[in-house]
Amino acid sequence: MVTPVLVSGDGTLVYNGGPVSATVPAVRDEAIDTTGDARGSFSLAGVSVAYGKDLVIEGVDMHIPPQAVTALIGPSGCGKSTLLRCLNRMNDELGNVHIGGTITLDGQSIMGKAMDPVELRMRVGQVFQRPNPFPMSIYDNVAYGPRTQGVRRRGELDGLVEESLKGAALWEEVKKSLKKHAFELSGGQQQRLCIARALATKPEVILMDEPASALDPISTQQIEDTIAELKSSVTIVIVTHNMQQAARISDRTAFMLRESLEEPAHLVEIGDTKKMFTNPDDERTESYITGRFG
């Protein structure tokens, strides 16, 4: 059954006559009030996503604290990646995607006309599942973002490239061959290059969509170490299928679930990673984490 979804005049999703967020008991996230001065915190309230008329995510309330790693976990098709793409408006590129509710970055709405997606994406970087460096040199890959922002001076670019490659723990391996084509790097190096490329625009947040799923264990380890280094300066939101990975690297974990194909996905539980993995409140979280489904 397809749930009828309408987008009302003010841009919020309406379904079965009422705003979507009102139709489900929202999962309360106590961390919501902890907004401080730190850059790079997201607040989501009643966030719903529809592809065309098909409601896929419903009523997500969530706070993503600054300078910490938040992991989104859940079975395939539970909307983790879709929710992640709401945070940098990459869903806009798919067309025919409607997002309801409110999402704020550092207290400022990022929805609709309130935020220019191009500006948002300079503040919220993304690393994709498969390494996707541009077909150009290592240097030009990292300098792409700053050049897009209008940085032209050689010295400034050089500095940004070095700093970003150091941030992604790739500098030592490539400092002598910055002119080399990015495709000559190994898969793991390419992914760290993509992290460096995202860092070069000085983002407040980096979104990672299963960044290590295409990599071997050693490269995965390096990516995880890089994430641990980075979280002191940027907020990281990571989607992962690997629960050990979520447990190892994240501070907070959000568990999403689509209970059946007829229903949209929703947030089951969010909390400190330690608590989520040892003593979750919801039995569905426990079942998933202990491997009983998914």
Partner: peptide, 13 residues
Amino acid sequence: PQDLRQASLALGA
């Protein structure tokens, strides 16, 4: 590949 367009758009291009 679509990946490349995504990468560029995600950098604010």
